[in-house]
């Protein structure tokens, strides 16, 4: 039987905004997210494109970025985060907390400070740190 999923009102609002920004329908965005999740949850052998050069594979219980990703999309820094992960050879869809070390976060803060006020960037960083601590 299919597993039911609950979506918070705030998450739904963000999803709608994200869909609007991407020029896609809400249904399309949800379908894409589900496809991505199915692809991620499949055993490694079945995956079409396994993530390259991952330091910490998702197979050992790697974490989902979804909750913090939604927030980062909302704040406009998600693409920057993903690019920084890629520059370290990491896959943004699943990772282990040790991949995101203090050096990575310091670098991310400096990158955010290039385009946002420092105060804003620091608040975002605190949110990310809180999320990461929840997984330790």
């Amino acid at each position: 039987m299919a597993e039911k999923t609950t979506v918070e009102i705030e998450d739904m609002r963000r999803l709608k905004q994200y869909a609007l920004d991407c020029g896609k329908s809400l249904k399309q965005v949800i379908n894409e997210a589900l496809d991505e999740k199915i692809q991620r949850d499949r055993p490694d052998m079945e995956k079409k494109d396994p993530p390259p050069k991952m330091k910490s594979p998702a197979a050992d219980g790697g974490m989902s970025l979804d909750p913090i990703r939604a927030k980062m999309v909302h704040w406009g820094v998600h693409s920057m985060f993903v690019s920084q992960m890629r520059s370290r050879g990491l896959d943004s869809s699943s990772f282990s907390p040790e991949d995101i070390d203090d050096k990575f976060l310091d670098e991310f803060l400096e990158n955010m400070c290039l385009v946002l006020e420092r105060e804003t960037a620091e608040t975002i960083l605190v949110e990310i740190k809180k999320f990461l601590e929840g997984y330790e």
Binding site: Q17, D21, V73, H74, W75, G76, V77, H78, S79, M80, V82, S83, Q84, R86, S87, N111, V115, L116, T120
Partner: peptide, 18 residues
């Protein structure tokens, strides 16, 4: 950081509009 896939549209516009 540029790796060719950076979504500048959302990076530039989100802080202005959202």
């Amino acid at each position: 950081l540029d790796d060719g896939d950076m979504d500048y549209g959302s990076m530039i516009l989100k802080p202005l509009l959202d």
